[in-house]
Write a protein that binds this DNA or RNA. Structure first.
Lengths: 353, 353
DNA sequence: AAACGCGTTGAGACCGGTCTCAATCTAGGT
DNA sequence: ACCTAGATTGAGACCGGTCTCAACGCGTTT
């Protein structure tokens, strides 16, 4: 006896209800599924029987012949990361309102896991995909998704060579503004730190795995260059996950860097701790700015100046777009870019000396 | 043509592969599904055909006759809340390792939404449920889940009158310890703040909607009572969501309260901000302690003394238990209680004056 | 050489719904 | 009273897998 959750009981099916209501299976299904034409009397009788038997429709069987599962798959780097928590919530609310549920998978920013996630979602026949792609430059793991013909919307980062909708923040402008602030305060030796992985030293023009970080680095080096700082690329420190933010910050301090731009709030947090442990005062000795208005940034001493992103809205808008595509909107691919907003606090000061 | 994602292409099925490999559908299914007996030659031939055609198994069809969906439903209050983010991640990792995926639903701590979520999960035929119940005292929304016969594991809170596994932290002991610390520092006028809803003033013995908060309040009032503080229940402030933490803290300060115990890190955060805005110094004027080692609590000035819970582990253990139940473990119901650990920082001082 | 056993294979039922199509019923038109 | 359009209803195919069961091929036993 399949479809049996290990315990004795069998699930009640349309046939059971039909028998109880003394109508055909087809009629019962119509009454229950609210489609086709059924007389009011019969419909009530069937509904009553269903209620009485404790009938719960099997959405899977429905999916089998409608081809729609009413679920969308969402692949995030790590749901524990507040950024993804917020984006997921935004997406979940929109999805729910449109009658969809979320199947959540973590990629740990790793292509293999991402491909795996896509494959699982494909097998579960989700109606669409919401993905924060692990790699902008090598989006091979996403191919099965686009080939499936089911809509895919990327959020937080774009992917090269994929004609799909994207929803991101304006990281280039945000990075420029943040760097300008530092430069205007008089800084010349400013470092950019990100956990993104990269082979060898960063050189101008290198494409990074995350389009967001890529844009941030681009904005950062551009402003530095315009300010006449030679070799701005030398101040870009990647691979912070592998090398450790702590170690990077320590060497930065040794090298006499006077300001740090953290690519995300987690990096900023680690940097903040290290500077504090080192007895380096923010902003007197070193200025610190970051992306994302994480809660701690307004509570710490000093409070951190940040570039805030409408994270919740990015997730929600991505879901809105996806839902529209699922509904059959064949409009040209969209690339939404949300503005970031600067929140000035107390972590910037002129360089010491 | 059903099962078609709106675009032209039809999905490749076992039958297609069978035809291409010139074997029966049954044999192809065996080769692909890795069950039954198939000669090596045929298996390779079928696999090659599948590969060539781009066959992707339909997990739903499989679920239909095995009765197992390999997905588990998780219902949290709000995935945006770091607590649930962490617990969900813990659960996701365990689930993934066991071959399950997560269907995520937010309940917003509201019974109606919770019931709805359960119903969706029931329809999707999840193999089991992971729920942080919105209400301890009125767990009616969970009944359909237990009646379905599919295993249900509660985490973070228990539910009255439900014989199901639960995984929670030792909130009673944690609250006692935190309160003792305050009492030992000399405080007598200590307030407890929680967002939990409650009709009218709190009276000793009242059951609160969340078992966690209930235990915390119980521990809190008990220690206060043992310290000889009259009417400890008068210091319990609930409904902070409705009334606003800010307003509550202001009136508390007016009333001359010298210490605050925040039931969670979100409340603590709001209280911290209000005290700062009021110019009330922590801990000189008012001491502040809270549950959960949220990241900001170690970064703020002063850093907050907290009672830390193994959140990640709570989620993971709940998932482990659930997976075991799904596998058919019929052992008696388990009620796991994780110890909380105190992290002493700088937010406690003797009361002023 | 007949009988037996085991590994393979194919045919077709089944899971629980949806949907097509034909049969039946009803009411309105003349 | 007779015909017909429209509303209801039932029978059965179908979605894409799994699984039972019978049939088949072939080496080994006696």
């Amino acid at each position: 006896m399949p479809a049996d959750p290990a315990n004795g009981r069998r699930e009640i099916t349309v046939s059971d209800v039909a028998a109880a209501a003394k109508v055909s299976k087809a009629t019962a299904a119509r009454a229950l599924g609210d489609y086709g034409a059924v007389s009011e009397a019969v419909r009530d009788r069937v509904r009553a029987a269903a209620e009485q038997l404790g009938y719960h429709p099997n959405a899977l069987a429905k999916t089998m012949n409608t081809g729609r599962s009413n679920s969308i798959g969402i692949v995030v780097g790590d749901i524990e990361n507040p950024f993804f928590g917020q984006a997921t919530r935004g997406a979940a609310d929109v999805a729910k309102a449109a009658g969809f549920d979320l199947i959540l998978l973590n990629s740990d920013e790793e292509a293999g896991a991402e491909e795996n996630a896509i494959s699982v979602l494909l097998a579960k026949r989700v109606d669409g995909f919401l993905v924060a792609p692990a790699s902008t430059t090598v989006p091979a793991s996403l191919h099965p998704a686009v080939e499936s013909g089911r809509p895919l919307v990327l959020f937080d980062r774009v992917a090269d060579g994929l004609d799909v909708d994207t929803v991101v923040a304006d990281n280039l402008a945000g990075a420029r503004r943040l760097t300008e602030l530092l430069v205007e305060a008089g800084h010349r030796r400013i470092a950019f730190i990100s956990t993104i992985g990269h082979e060898g030293d960063y050189r101008l023009g290198d494409r990074l795995g995350s389009s967001s970080v890529n844009d941030r680095v681009t904005g950062f080096t551009a402003v530095l260059g315009e300010a006449g700082v030679p070799n701005p690329e030398a101040f870009v420190r990647l691979n912070a996950r592998r090398d450790g933010v702590d170690a990077i910050v320590r060497s930065l301090v040794d090298e006499g860097v006077t300001a740090i731009l953290a690519s995300d709030s987690l990096v900023a947090q680690a940097a903040f701790r290290t500077l504090r442990d080192l007895g380096v005062a923010i902003p007197r000795d070193v200025s610190l700015v970051a992306f994302d208005d994480a809660d701690w940034t307004s509570l710490s001493d000093p409070a951190i100046t940040v570039m805030s992103q409408p994270i919740h809205e990015i997730g929600a808008e991505a879901a809105r777009l996806l839902v529209r595509r699922i509904a059959g909107d064949g409009a040209p691919t969209e690339h939404l870019v949300f503005p970031q907003v600067l929140i000035e606090r107390e972590s910037i000061a002129p360089p010491p000396g």
